[in-house]
Write a protein that binds this DNA or RNA. Sequence first.
DNA 1: TAGATTGTTAATCGATTAACAATC
DNA 2: TAGATTGTTAATCGATTAACAATC
Lengths: 216, 216
Amino acid sequence: MINPKNLPIPSIQRLPRYLRLLEEAKARGERVVSCTRIADDLGQLSVQVRKDLAITGVTGRPKVGYRVDELIDAIRNFLGWNQKTNAFLVGVGNLGSAILNYAGFVTHGLNVVGVFDVNPRLRGKEVNGHKIIPFGEMLDYVKMLNGYGIVVQMGVITVPASAAQDVADKLVQCGVRGIWNYAPTVLELPENVVCENVKLSESFAVLTNRMRNQDL
Amino acid sequence: MINPKNLPIPSIQRLPRYLRLLEEAKARGERVVSCTRIADDLGQLSVQVRKDLAITGVTGRPKVGYRVDELIDAIRNFLGWNQKTNAFLVGVGNLGSAILNYAGFVTHGLNVVGVFDVNPRLRGKEVNGHKIIPFGEMLDYVKMLNGYGIVVQMGVITVPASAAQDVADKLVQCGVRGIWNYAPTVLELPENVVCENVKLSESFAVLTNRMRNQDL
DNA sequence: TAGATTGTTAATCGATTAACAATC
DNA sequence: TAGATTGTTAATCGATTAACAATC
């Protein structure tokens, strides 16, 4: 926990799982959970859970376990989920709509402050309370928001691959510091903008390959 | 390539990227591609590309490179994407609709032969040509398909987490050998059914954590 | 031929797992 | 106290990268 960079990415990826489990435990009224329990429920080794939880800075008590409330707070804080992340979403197809309608991301701090699409016919149409704005008006819109002291931190890209780079460039102009990219493209971005690609085809590839190898 | 199991999963996950690049190269009329080029385009090391391509069984020619057509075929074959995979999709919300409307998965062999939802009001409604069937009728429907010699190999789960295990159990009864799970749950499945979880919250976690650590 | 590129073995790096001491 | 659990160091495992030989 000295240098928060270069932490094991697999560990970070497992934290949301623990968080879900802990919130379920809290809902059941449990105040303390051991990593042995967590590991059993998720089919992992307890030592891995322990290591993962350690990166958030919390410590447990031998024989007792970890305090549920403390752990939930620590994970949410570590992931940046206890604060709002203002975001633009570009591309209101089914995928974009799915994200806008999924309540889970709101609890992770995702705060959509602008929804855009190139299709001018969608102008003014609402998706889960968000009015769709023509893509061409994004820069004007962000200036307006900035005038009110609202800064856009993240861009969510749910457009076809062919349009993704253009969208990314525009989002960078808007000042985003991170991009959540659902398009199957490798984006070129300035060094100070972090990017996370959602790998749908990659996931499908692992599945079909394993199904194929079942037969052999 | 002797034992097709226990291949490096990261390598399998990178293959779709190469495939996309190769198809673009083919569209431009290129007949041969070197792994140096692929590596440059994707920001990787050429030796990694070489190792990854090796698992598909293709060999390149020194000084020349790999034949584009051969490589495309080999990757698609290795991933099981050159044959159709019959699938049921359960849960026709925005996410399910997004998958049904995305042409990319069709080119990966995804052949949806049944679309289901618990909501009886959706009965008969169409999504991209697929009539929605009430979830309760799934077993009858699969029997009907089996009568025509059609076997369902894969289940795609796009329902809320709370319903995912029930859906998975039913899909297993239908005889699927693989499950593509978009719900944020760890599913309990028989040993002979492979499962791939799409990790959306996990992806978001990595992004927000990195954005948070930018500041430090 | 010279040089670019592939293929492969060895070295490094990082994550997981094992072992065990510390502690409530 | 005894035993369950945490925390940490060491060993293992697997993937990436480096080095270099083979080859067209």
